[in-house]
Design a protein around this nucleic acid. Structure first.
Lengths: 138, 138
DNA sequence: CCGGATCCAGAACGATACTG
DNA sequence: CAGTATCGTTCTGGATCCGG
């Protein structure tokens, strides 16, 4: 399919133009992977099942609260499975669902693209900031 | 290339695990497409060059301020080109760069995935909310 | 160990008025 | 037309303490 022509792209996304259109689901996905932590959790779970504390250590900058919220939202969307073992103390594991692994594949492509263009984007920003010293807002 | 194995994914993303790692650029991209408006602007520009007001009418819920900020950030990242014509009154056009069109292609895949799974995700959420009435937070 | 509850700071976003 | 400036609100995320 080569690379989709521009018209193909808009054919899929155009309904989003009028804000709040109910038939466009991309916001749901962007709201999920667009936040600060979901992608990191997804990536960590891509290597296998993890317990709560394992996740927190792997993503050591995340707060307990945000990890709780993040995995809960992922669970709600059917992207991860949360399993509680009634041991003492409690033990909970998280793993990706099939749907979650499909999303992981897309995340990988985003990561690849990011790495490919990271240097060029950095250069563009530096140049822009030099040429537009008055635009301080990021 | 089929679908990348989980280890492939983590091979690319693992460096992000320790927060603030300088070599991972995916946050730059997610910060851009993760916000409320960038994707809509990118999609609109995918159909061709647009003037400021054309963009604002196409994305009618966006405020003037947010449109300004969004296109400026896209320009700074080298994803769109801003051209000023010194007419009276002023006239400014925006168009995607090659880099921007590459990103558009990824956005299209996200949109496709979103549409494919929109119904299932909605069902998952409904079920979750039924089974967990106490978790009100989204 | 795995959270829930609460409080708070800062960022994101919106509305409005003004300008070259 | 295409912004800029300012203000107010809303939303997100972090810190801390508490509980099963």
């Amino acid at each position: 399919m080569a690379l989709g022509s521009h018209t193909e792209v808009t054919a899929v996304l155009e309904p989003c133009g009028d804000a709040g259109h109910p038939d466009c689901g991309i916001r749901d996905v962007l709201d999920r992977i667009g936040d600060r932590w979901s992608v990191l959790v997804i990536v960590e779970l891509a290597s296998g099942t993890r317990r709560f504390n394992e996740l927190q250590r792997a993503i050591d900058a995340i707060s307990q609260r945000m990890l709780t919220l993040t995995v809960r939202r992922l669970e709600r969307d059917g992207l991860v499975i949360r399993t509680v073992y009634p041991t003492v103390p409690a033990q909970v594991t998280y793993e990706l669902t099939e749907r979650g692994r499909g999303l992981t594949h897309l995340v990988k492509q985003l990561a690849d693209w990011s790495l490919e263009h990271k240097a060029a984007i950095g250069a563009s920003r530096k140049l822009y900031d030099l040429e537009n010293p008055e635009n301080v807002i990021r």
